[in-house]
Design a protein around this nucleic acid. Structure first.
Lengths: 353, 353
DNA sequence: AGGATCTGATTAATCGTTTAATCATGCATA
DNA sequence: TATGCATGATTAAACGATTAATCAGATCCT
């Protein structure tokens, strides 16, 4: 900055004004300053600017357990959206206990981030913080800024399976404390016809008893006539798929499987997994937009620090792949009309292997 | 800072000295300053300090395609190691083309990071940069600071399978341009006995012809007598596992499968995948340690900006799970002695399904 | 007692911007 | 001609820490 000023024989303030477009500088001088800056490869000191303006140009990203396989999608989308707006992204890991989430937030604030994007841990509520916050969780979460419409995603899954003639559902979740999973499971349930059967498996409960990685007993479910296995995550869908395959049950011929989130492996396994994808880019754009609006607004005592967006739920999209197929019934024509098919709760016939 | 100084009737400089332990301050005053700082909830301005000292206290993390499933492990470990050393971590996404990697690095430097940890993209070489850099790739990469010993990991895989009696190997990689994958595959090959058979599948080549997600033809391999499928990543191991399962081949009874990296799903699929794990924590600690050493060393014209560590390869560890099992042969006792078993290259007998 | 030394604290400059206040100049208007 | 106003640039004070240089006293030594 001062090097440009010296080289041009003007004051540093003028250079600052020229570069920022503020103040009054003649168009001709502005051009000369620009040229000189370019020539000297000048890059402004973000620290000096931050000190003077009180804006660091950095936002924090707090994620529940970074090793969540969904993390990459979110992180990448947030990073891109932030970069487009000229912000950097500082990551903080809130894995471990819930106290660590508070600690992570604390550290970010000490680093003087301008705002924080947070995907909260199970069962934590984000209270007013010392800086603007955008929360990405679930529409049913209080203070949620924006998120995928998990409930609608669940409906998509159920509708898809119902359309294929399924009536007997096993829904697989990990932890009922998660708003996201609850919404997904709830959405599914809401679209399962009255004449259908529903069974819900919460994996973490099972594992408390049977140990991590325990079988979910899906073979028995199939033998009991269940044909549709819908999980709240591709991780669990994959678990279901392999458990079924291993038990000699053919997917999708004898059972259909659906997951959520379109995680990396879902498209490369065999058969590839039908899933529901969230538009991470749109969510990130909205979250960052709302966060920046909150940051740029003059801080007033009565205004909340929690960013709110016009649109707070982004629709999810079904990605049909190979793990779902039309249910083969004794009377194939019946499956077209869901309200009449299988009025009894007896299991439909399955194809023999 | 000045609020403490005013409250105590001393100068700001004294407060600074008291808090940092530099200069000469009486022990008694130091204690009073500490107490007052605590009482007022004082947090130092990192920007002001950064401006004065020229150190931002932030390092950048550049990852090839954030959505790489290995990313979470690395990111989390780096973040922890950095946080322990009092540094923040700024993420940058270098997905897309290679030019974006350069751009990402550029942006980090503009943000005045003190150093950069970079996991390079395929086929890029990290040259001298304007700030200290630690490179995490593979021991066979020039300028590599530290990484897992992928070659040794490959040996672990091969030894494990050979111990189980296998002689006919299909090695599965994605892209031969990757040093990491090349090392892993190379290490495997180096431990396959002379009387063994080896076939290598490079997935990306196959997909160029057959399209993404195409079958790898593993059933035919099994019919040809191959019994061991070792992939350079759990992602590909999973692909192999499901393809085999789908073809009605039982794992591990008829074929063994091994992967790399112990990705999240590997332990929950059925059967759970035998894999080789890298010690991301140790690698991150070493990388951060070497990076900070380079940062703290006075910059001299002749010294390189690329961090070097005492130990630059961290051993990998085999995680035996359910996808690998002893090969059932006609003469079971022979499989104990690898140098004698199957001296001909004819395929061993397999169990009928 | 007088000079050297040590201790504990203060002063003031500095990092590189931003920005309100000020100033100099030219030009139009009364 | 004096006044007012617009324009284009400069001055100088911040922002909040760090740190070299300085200073005032107390202590010590001969």
């Amino acid at each position: 900055m001062s090097v440009i000023a010296d080289a041009l024989g003007v004051s540093a303030a003028t250079v600052s004004n020229a570069l920022s477009g503020k103040g009054r500088v003649s168009p001709e001088l502005i051009e000369r300053v620009r040229a000189k800056a370019e020539e000297l490869g000048y890059v402004p000191s973000v620290t000096a600017r931050a000190l003077r303006t009180g804006r660091s140009g950095v936002i924090g990203l707090v994620l529940p357990n970074i090793s969540n396989p969904l993390f990459p999608q979110i992180a990448q989308a947030i990073e891109n959206a932030a970069a487009d707006a000229g912000y950097g992204v500082l990551i903080a890991d809130s894995s471990g206990d819930n106290a660590k989430q508070t600690l992570a937030i604390q550290r970010l604030i000490e680093r003087q981030v301008d705002g924080i994007v947070i995907v909260p841990r199970l069962g934590t509520r984000i209270a007013e913080l010392a800086c603007p916050v955008a929360v990405i969780d679930s529409p049913s979460t209080p203070n949620n800024t924006v998120s995928a419409d998990h409930w609608q995603g669940g409906q998509l899954v159920a509708e898809h399976l119902v359309d294929l003639g399924h009536r007997d559902f096993v829904l697989i979740g990990a932890n009922p404390l998660s708003n996201v999973q609850n919404d997904r499971i709830g959405g599914m349930k809401s679209r399962i016809p009255k004449d259908g059967r529903v069974d819900v498996i919460w994996i973490e409960r099972n594992e408390m008893v049977l140990g991590a990685g325990c079988p979910l007993g899906l073979k028995e479910k199939v033998e009991n006539g269940f044909t549709a296995f819908a999980a709240s995550s591709d991780l669990h869908a994959l678990r279901a798929l392999t458990e079924l395959q291993r038990a000699g049950i053919r997917v999708p011929n004898e059972a259909s499987v659906v997951g959520f989130d379109d995680l990396v492996w879902s498209s490369v396994v065999s058969p590839s997994i039908t899933t529901v994808r969230q538009d991470a880019v749109a969510i990130a754009d909205i979250a960052i937009g709302a966060l920046l609006a909150t940051i740029e607004r003059e801080p007033s005592p009565e205004a909340s620090n929690i960013a709110v967006a016009q649109c707070n739920r982004v629709p999810m999209a079904l990605v049909p792949r190979q793990t779902t197929a039309r249910l083969a019934t004794a009377d194939a024509s019946a499956s077209d009309n869901s309200s009449f098919a299988n009025s009894s709760s007896s299991p439909p016939e399955r194809n023999a292997p």
